[in-house]
Amino acid sequence: MIPRVVLAAAAVVLLLAPWPAPLSLAGAATLVGAAVAVWAVRAPGSLAPLVLLATAVVSWLSAVPDPGLARIAAFAAAGYAVHSAAAISAAVPAGAPVGATLLWRWVGQTLAVLVIGWSLVAMTALVAGLPGSAGLVIVGMLAAVTFVALPAVVVRRGRP
């Protein structure tokens, strides 16, 4: 039950982080995102969390042209929480009590991943100089190639 509660809370933060005007593309995306969030909580193993993240990103891009660091952190943390909570919730039946060991490890892992991930991005930005520089482009391209190839590797490993 707790992972789904976390998923719902994170979805709310994710959708409110852009704080768009109601009558705009971002506002419409937020409304769609709210409906999808319900779907994601009910069926975390479906495509709903992906659609939720996509609508949140659309809303973010159109509503927040120049975000501050705190806002980025809130948005990114909520996005990652949606992703990981959905991954855990998909394996846990609704209403099932979740062991404390699992919860604490999940919380710890989430915090560690956020801190290390953001540190890596920050260091990359520092090394690359200004945002959008050639160095950042290369890092982005490498990351994209890695994560497009990653599922194929995993699927091949998972099969006997």
Binding site: L53, G117, P131, G140, A144
Partner: peptide, 27 residues
Amino acid sequence: VAGGLALLAVLLRRPDLLYLAAPIALA
């Protein structure tokens, strides 16, 4: 999400998207 955000970050010159992509990719 990780691949798409990385591409968007590059194409739209929005490095803030990497703050969401990086934890997902790292985990």
